[in-house]
Design a protein around this nucleic acid. Structure first.
Lengths: 249, 249
DNA sequence: TAGTGGTCTAGACCACCGT
DNA sequence: CGGTGGTCTAGACCACTAG
């Protein structure tokens, strides 16, 4: 059972505002799985009593984590750890659309999985040391059984060790829910860069086109809830069928 | 001088939470220019007294408008209407990068300005009635004096009437600050769609390339602070030099 | 009906800014 | 120094959910 000393004993910086310390503590609970999405987290009044702070202070911390998409409130029911699977998790990062701008619903097939030493580019984009090992995936994504996207995905082999023990056929269509379920890693944010080029031999084969066919190249660096660079992805899509939609705020 | 009756008399729905009504009222003040970026808005305590609510309620409303990028707080100084010009206004919507992913700093040159009847596409993307008139701009954006982007921009001629009286040479490099200064219209949000095609005759000429040269086509629909579709923009960029970066959350 | 989050109040004290 | 926003407290009552 948590006590009112837990805040004092935790590693959070005591010079920070109380609600910040609470946030750090709550994020740790989510990361470590102490709070799961199975049941509501303790009520605001309980949390206030646990940590010896006013309910308004707890509320402020929870507000921030709701804004950061880590928690969801449900009036009358409680506050829950956000389920990554839930709702439109797909369309948060998958921005491909048809010619009319309508979102596409893709499926996925893993082509290969291999552990190897990280190359220079991977070390750079995953903040790894020389000699570190990565897990590399190749994947196609299909819409109505037509290949739309060829992806090369790299992650830190050490952090993603559980992934080596799961059959690629059981990965499912979405990797981020898998990362969370199998490795306890939550992707919160990503940066994508789009440019145009010509298809590599591998991409061309899997996209059923000739080498040198025009493609859109999408590079993605994804970050987890500790802001650590966690996944590096380079995708190719046939330029002739490429359409990508994004909201700027 | 505002009185405590102003909330009751305003058009905001009185069934809404108080802080929501305050937000609506504050947004109206910003839209109408009653609050400008020249001086701080009234202090939280003053606002609470003006409208007969608790300071915490005012604070909640201001918090939301800060999150929506309409206001900025400055501890010890006051709260200010956000200056669109300020800081990185450019890079909020301009997502073009060099080959290394570094943001590019473009200038702009207006090529033409013309008022005409809206075509079907413009009516659709600007929510205009048949027969409505639009102001059409053509523009090139340059990086180090090299043309990077050819843009066709359409806005409601009626709402943007002041723009017809300003010399295009005086428009400056950024349109959204101009929209605000000249027309009191603030762009808050935009949706962009990227695809791949071949250059139109006009675009090719201004990008110094042949007709049919591969280009990236970027369509943008921009919305103002009332969520009204306000600007419709179709841009073309040489595919060979196109690079576009965006953060997904 | 009991318990949850949602709204709102009415203060206190602190950190920061300009004068 | 006085005034601003930043943090924090300690309640009240309402709206919603589940049993």
């Amino acid at each position: 059972m948590a006590t009112s000393d837990e805040l004092q004993e935790s590693t959070t910086d005591r010079r920070l505002p109380l609600y910040q310390q609470l946030k750090d503590l709550f994020v740790a609970k989510i990361r470590d799985g102490a709070w799961s999405d199975a049941a509501p987290i303790p009520s605001e009044i309980e949390l206030a009593a646990m940590y010896g702070v006013a309910p308004g202070t707890v509320r402020r911390a929870i507000d921030d984590l709701v804004a950061a998409r880590l928690l969801v409130r449900q009036q009358g029911r409680g506050t829950f750890v956000r389920d990554v699977d839930l709702g439109n998790a797909l369309f948060r990062f998958f921005r491909f659309t048809d010619a009319k701008g309508q979102a596409l619903l893709p499926s996925a097939r893993i082509l290969s999985r291999r552990e190897t030493e990280a190359d220079r580019e991977e070390r750079e984009h995953l903040a790894l040391a020389r000699g570190a090992r990565v897990l590399r995936l190749e994947r196609v994504r299909l819409v109505r059984d037509e290949p739309l996207l060829f992806e090369k995905i790299s992650v830190d082999a050490h952090r993603f060790k559980p992934l080596a023990r799961i059959e690629p056929g059981d990965f499912g269509d979405l990797l981020y829910p898998l990362y969370q379920a199998a490795c306890g890693i939550r992707i919160l944010r990503a940066v994508e860069t789009i440019r145009f080029g010509t298809a590599s031999a591998g991409a061309a084969r899997h996209l059923r086109a000739g080498t040198g066919t025009p493609v859109a190249i999408i590079e993605r660096q994804a970050f987890d809830l500790d802001e650590q660079a966690t996944e590096w992805r380079v995708s190719q899509a046939l330029a002739s069928r490429f359409s990508y939609s994004v909201e700027l705020r």
